[in-house]
Nucleic acid binder design. Sequence first.
DNA 1: AGGTCAATGCGTAAAAACTACACAATATTA
DNA 2: TAATATTGTGTAGTTTTTACGCATTGACCT
Lengths: 254, 254
Amino acid sequence: MDPKLKAYFESTLKEVSIDCVIFGFHEGELKVLLLKWKGTEGWSLPGGKIYLEESVNDAAVRILQERTGLKEIFLQQFYTFGGNDRYKNMDKAALFRKLEWAFGADFYDEKYMKRHVSLGYMALVEFEQVVATPDWYTDECMWCEISAIPELLFDHNEMVEVALKALRRQLSYQPIGYNLLPEKFTMPELQRLYETILGKQLDRRNFQKLMLSYDILEKLPEKRTGGAFKAPFLYRFDKEKYDRAMREEILFAI
Amino acid sequence: MDPKLKAYFESTLKEVSIDCVIFGFHEGELKVLLLKWKGTEGWSLPGGKIYLEESVNDAAVRILQERTGLKEIFLQQFYTFGGNDRYKNMDKAALFRKLEWAFGADFYDEKYMKRHVSLGYMALVEFEQVVATPDWYTDECMWCEISAIPELLFDHNEMVEVALKALRRQLSYQPIGYNLLPEKFTMPELQRLYETILGKQLDRRNFQKLMLSYDILEKLPEKRTGGAFKAPFLYRFDKEKYDRAMREEILFAI
DNA sequence: AGGTCAATGCGTAAAAACTACACAATATTA
DNA sequence: TAATATTGTGTAGTTTTTACGCATTGACCT
């Protein structure tokens, strides 16, 4: 095993790690960042371990920065996974061979396969700003549309589902979009984001009325030109009011 | 150190444990179950460790059963605590002496104080059915009213606050009460439960209309006699419909 | 350059949900 | 048996949500 990797593992918690469901929004689709494991065809969520000196939230921020280059973004816990059936649908022997390939036979053993707790974090990022970077075990990154996610390693498919459910629920008491959209955006773009997350169509006119009623948007004098047909106005979040709505959990009846 | 205790610790995860905020409802008050540590005046939440072979959720069920004697109750994760400031407001030396008293000097060291991840679970229990039982480190149990909780060990005060916030939020998209009330209850009793959790008064008549509109209650022909003045009707949850409302997260506008 | 097209901006009416009370009914107590 | 405090039911006014109409706009096509 690589000495640097070994040193890393020995300076981190052994029984706990972090997995991140990183949501991005692009071309009207909600996407998740996936990593492909070296020498295999197996995809997984980005993740990492927690140093002894850092808080778990700090570790999540660090891991996210390592993978996307982004700081100061929306990032929060959504669930902690520690079932004893986390690998039940998998060929354990094959998985073990993969892990052996990545970590070396002297580190990963059946004990860790038996009970490993994973803290699920979800992040909302601005697609365009992300510089996706693989880690030690992986050699490829992919933004995968939420409805076309392949079979992932470990219990990562379940994690995506739970994260999406938590995100949908969150939509009903907090605004969303600040870290998911570019600084300036149009009302139809914001609507498409909501529709994608909720998985249902919304009325254009009522959506606009509702959003404006929350008083978190600033209408700009500019319009988005270049597209076909009538040019829509651009909006921007009023960060102060947006943050207040986040804190106070003003109900969004959608 | 006691050999049995040592064996227990060695068969469990070292870096992770579970803490439970157990809510009970009694005499119109929302209460939390606390434990007093042996030989100290320090109170804490009930908690425990996770065996290598069990899932974290199973561990939470087991711990809850050990403390309350109850199974098959409402129990769910609400947050995972792993800040590096979990003991920041405490006299670390004094805390360490306490832990030494309980665990022996050969087990607990500064390393575990530095980073220990705690999975916060909350439970809703039927007060009358609980047989509160202390564990190895504790010798006394107490149901403490939510507004009169003393300073607790570790970061347990914060845990109670976070749990209560999660519970309040939950009220807005899921029904509550099945595990918190006796099988048969009156509408005013249910209302007092909601008022206590939400921390605000509700209109009696509107509350009744709303609750009945969810179609999860069954009105019984009996009345609660014995109290002063007019006897109120008894109700019972229709478990099937109640569970469906839980699953589908029908919005409760309260 | 002007008509066509499809999306945007703004508005209104009906339906549903929520809020605030009014009043009769009732089991216990004095 | 009357007094009392609480429960059971209803209703009107207000607000929120839903459904949809219509004029406007900017790019495209001819």
